[in-house]
């Protein structure tokens, strides 16, 4: 009899251990809860992407057919052909890269230099400057927008890349303060020993910066560039005002997608369907305008994710 209760007890303990775990973090229930939450919330983020992707492949018949929900009956690429025409995809893409990559590069470079200066040197007014750097982050761009607009107009650089590039080169680009802080934290966390050794060997400050500090800062450089790139890519408000009609970007084209479409394919009176703008075409346009960014993200996500740990975003 005793052996039987012991055995039951043993099984009871075993199952309990399986479900609740030894320490509270490795039980089955706990795991179920965590994975449930992760999958559930992950679905919230993936759902719009899936929806976008599926709808962009739906032909008009599929869109109208209430039975066709997630799987289109045929692989229909007509939406993309039309969206491609409306967005003028390849030339717009090139233009977008032109107005995002260059300012992002300039901004990263200058943030590295300024962050290094703040982290490694003491000079008068450093504290004030620090406060000012932080202050530039909370100033809404709208406050400085009008004077900058007038100023750029006088310099005659409205409608050219300089309107983005110039502020970026002087550390006043989009969210420049964040990048300066990233580099500041990074350089502060790096031990000084190597640089001091180089100094004893007679290397100047600039040489130390370029040959020792900068190569070490690679994680910070990558993450700054990626964020800078993404933010410049998605910037439509300033881009619309500074560039006017001279330069355009994919997100800007997406904003006036409906208007452009109606201009290119005027709706024929009395004929329904045919040339009408439908959800499928709109979704195809949306996919096209976010696709390059997504591709970059999926290629570089390793650095996004791991670079965060190493670039010292959070400081010490």
């Amino acid at each position: 009899m005793q052996t039987k209760t012991q055995q039951v007890n043993k099984y009871y303990l075993k199952t309990k251990r399986m479900f609740l775990g030894m320490q509270g973090t490795d039980g089955l229930l706990y795991k179920l809860l965590i994975y449930g939450l992760l999958v559930g919330i992950g679905f919230v983020y993936l759902y719009p992407l899936l929806y976008m992707g599926v709808y962009s492949f739906k032909s008009l018949d599929d869109l109208l057919n209430p039975l066709v929900n997630w799987i289109p009956t045929q692989f229909y690429t007509g939406n993309y052909e039309q969206a491609n025409k409306v967005l003028n995809f390849f030339s717009t893409l090139m233009e977008t890269l032109y107005v995002t990559v260059l300012p992002a590069l300039a901004q990263t470079a200058v943030a590295a230099v300024v962050g290094y200066g703040l982290a490694r040197f003491d000079f008068r007014g450093k504290k004030i400057m620090f406060v000012l750097v932080l202050a530039t982050f909370i100033i809404p761009p709208q406050v400085t927008l009008i004077p900058r607009y007038i100023f750029f107009n006088e310099l005659n650089i409205l409608g050219s890349l300089s309107a983005f590039l110039l502020p970026a080169t002087f550390g006043q680009g989009l969210n420049s303060a964040i990048f300066i802080l990233i580099f500041y934290q990074f350089f502060r966390a790096v031990p000084k020993a190597l640089e001091e050794a180089a100094q004893l060997d007679g290397a100047g400050h600039f040489r130390i910066f370029f040959t020792i500090a900068l190569p070490m800062a690679l994680p910070a450089i990558i993450i700054s560039f990626l964020f800078s790139f993404v933010w410049y890519w998605n910037e439509t408000y300033l881009a619309a005002i500074y560039f006017g009609d001279a330069l355009t970007t994919l997100p800007l084209q997406l904003q006036k997608f409906v208007a452009t479409y109606q201009q290119m394919f005027p709706a024929e009176m009395g004929v329904s369907g045919g040339n009408q703008l439908n959800e499928g075409i709109k979704m195809a346009g949306t996919v096209l305008s976010i696709l390059p960014l997504l591709i970059v993200y999926f290629i570089t996500q390793r650095w996004f994710v791991e670079g965060v740990d190493r670039s010292g975003i959070t400081g010490e």
Binding site: V110, V113, V114, Y116, G117, L118, R120, F121, D122, F123, K126, M129, L132, V133, T136, I139, T144, R148, L166, P167, T169, F170, G171, Q172, I180, H205, F209
Partner: peptide
């Protein structure tokens, strides 16, 4: 040297902000 490193920012801050 420190001032030289941060000078782009100071200049930019005065002109653009």
């Amino acid at each position: 040297t420190g001032l030289l490193f941060v000078s782009p920012w100071i200049l930019g801050f005065l002109i653009f902000t």
